[in-house]
Design a protein around this nucleic acid. Structure first.
Lengths: 334, 334
DNA sequence: TCTATCGTGTTAAACGTTTATCTCTTGGAA
DNA sequence: TTCCAAGAGATAAACGTTTAACACGATAGA
């Protein structure tokens, strides 16, 4: 693969390198005849525009960076999947980096990302603290923050879910079904989205005179979560229903209940969070809160593109609604 | 963000740009004093090496491309996750592209990938046909093929699982438990790994005089799979056991069985493929074939690095063993 | 004392594009 | 017929690095 350059293509086609460049970038008209000659030459030599050179000269990058906390939660990978697809359609390339739920790594990865001089960044911060680089005050780099948005004095666009309402609707359904003793399986209660969901549940209970739900914090991994929850169930009076705050905690709850031999919904009812195929692939399909995954990705991408194309609109906090998927994991109490 | 260049850093530190470059690339020694001055200046200006310029001049890229068929199968995302981690440790960046299970898109994405002039590529082809670009005959680009390796006259390294043995061990377990009527839930039987797994099951049955298993092909999506399998169960005599050929078909089988109200393992036994947390998060934990995910990623990465660093070793087909995780979804028949 | 060697640093020439500027035709409008 | 605008290509100057070649002391072997 003796790297073939624009010069060789130009020579073979009998034109200048500028013409070749124009054929590929399409920013100046080239007659049909020359265009054909160039295409043919390029194909014959299997020429490929060198991104590095192109980007260096033009300053434009056709790259967007995507930062996610990890690849374990399907919520994040699904988002990445959708964004990759949108990006490809828009002839952008995506560089995905993971912070592995660690602020230090987050900063490092973000730094590395900047080396690409991306056109924009879509980020799900690892914690409530938005990294300095993403606060948007540094300079014109378009940024869209998604999901874990902890602060509110931001200057960048955000796309989130109405987590308070999501929690409320889950609680309302349980209360409607006669539940009074509710527990919450939370991952990290300090994270803003989780915090809001918990408040949603709590507020709903308070509004109807139902005792405040107990909150069990189980961490970010399935294994530790199942362990902690199982122990908690052993040491405390059982609630009649549990509502899980993320898709990982849903899994952890399922494991803990199975481990303790507690039937759903006979012994304990469950409302899960996020909605994936495996939730229906069970004898008792799970009632769950569905986040509008595709919409989140679409809105985030759309917003980023607007910014990249220099839209002067004011910043916006896009808040989408989650919906409760009613299935069979919640018992109707007498 | 008035892009700050190496020149400004050099000026501020009172050195030449070559020295700044050396400090960052580390390929020539710089005295501690100057190094400190440079670091400080760089930090003060928040300087970031421009990858495009760096790569253009040096020809080296510190980038590896990763091609996967899709982001729906956890097997692929898990692989990507692990590779991203290994890459970060080695100061490489990963560009992930998805072929969306389509040969046309695969070629397009691969072309785009080449524009980055990556140091190497780890690829899971979408079909048995290895894309021309990856056949390795084009030139020195290091390539490692993983999982879906259809041909055997390759010149590149490969990392696969011993699929025949994996299928065999699943079948053997069923036969040991007294099963004689076995069905296979396959995704796309033509794919080499699937084909081998099916043969493994079939050969094992044949070797012990058990009737040949019936194969049901259910496609790549959970939804269609559940539908097809459910219909099949309605129209045919039930087998006593089903073995699923991928993690998506496992899910599809679970759904189909739940839809038909068939209990596991009382009505039908099930051996799943791939081993994820959700498989244990059920009342009846799933017996499943576990692919050594982490090992696959590690070996693929290791091999790629060897190649990139110019190892002259002969090409190798690395074949790893899958292991059967015994749990409770297979009934012991009288 | 005279070279040879080594350790540090600088100079300047690329790398493969993009794009502002220039040149040359061609075809109306006056 | 003359002039000018518009269209289509070509020329050449960057873009921000890396790195070969070079310079300059200091050290050491002869």
């Amino acid at each position: 693969m003796t790297k073939v350059t624009i010069r060789e293509v130009a020579e073979r086609a009998g034109v200048s390198i500028a013409t070749v460049s124009n054929v590929f970038s399409g920013r100046k008209l080239v007659t049909e005849e020359l265009r054909a000659r160039v295409q043919e030459a390029a194909h014959a030599l299997s020429y490929q525009v060198d991104r590095a050179a192109s980007q260096l000269k033009s300053g434009r990058a056709q790259v967007v960076g995507v930062l996610v906390p990890n690849f374990n939660d399907t919520f994040f990978t699904s988002l990445v999947s959708r964004i990759e697809q949108l990006a490809a359609e828009a002839h952008y390339q995506v560089i995905v980096v993971s912070s592995q739920d660690d602020q230090g790594i987050e900063t490092a990865r973000l730094d590395a990302l900047m080396g690409w001089r991306p056109s924009g960044i879509i980020a799900i911060p690892a914690t409530n603290a938005v990294p300095r680089l993403l606060s948007g005050e540094v300079g014109g780099l378009p940024i869209v923050l998604v999901d874990r948005v902890g602060q509110s004095d931001l200057v960048v666009d955000t796309v989130t879910v109405n987590n308070h309402a999501a929690g409320w609707s889950a609680a309302q359904h349980l209360i409607d079904c006669g539940h009074r003793s509710i527990a919450i399986a939370s991952s990290v209660s300090a994270f803003r989205p989780i915090h809001d969901r918990i408040r949603g549940v709590t507020d709903c209970c308070a509004s109807q005179g139902v005792p405040a739900p107990r909150v069990v914090e189980v961490g970010l991994s399935h294994e530790s979560g199942a362990e902690i929850l199982s122990e908690w169930l052993g040491a405390n009076a059982h609630p009649t229903a549990i509502v899980a705050m993320t898709n990982v905690t849903t899994l952890a709850t399922l494991s803990a209940l199975a481990r303790r031999g507690l039937e759903i919904p006979d012994a304990i009812s469950l409302v899960g969070f996020d909605d994936y195929t495996w939730m229906t692939a069970r004898k008792v399909p799970l009632t769950a809160v569905r986040q509008p995954l595709e919409q989140i990705a679409d809105r985030a991408w759309g917003r980023l593109m607007s910014r990249i194309n220099g839209s002067p609109e004011a910043r916006e906090d896009i808040v989408l609604d989650a919906s409760l998927q009613l299935r069979s994991s919640v018992a109707r109490l007498a």
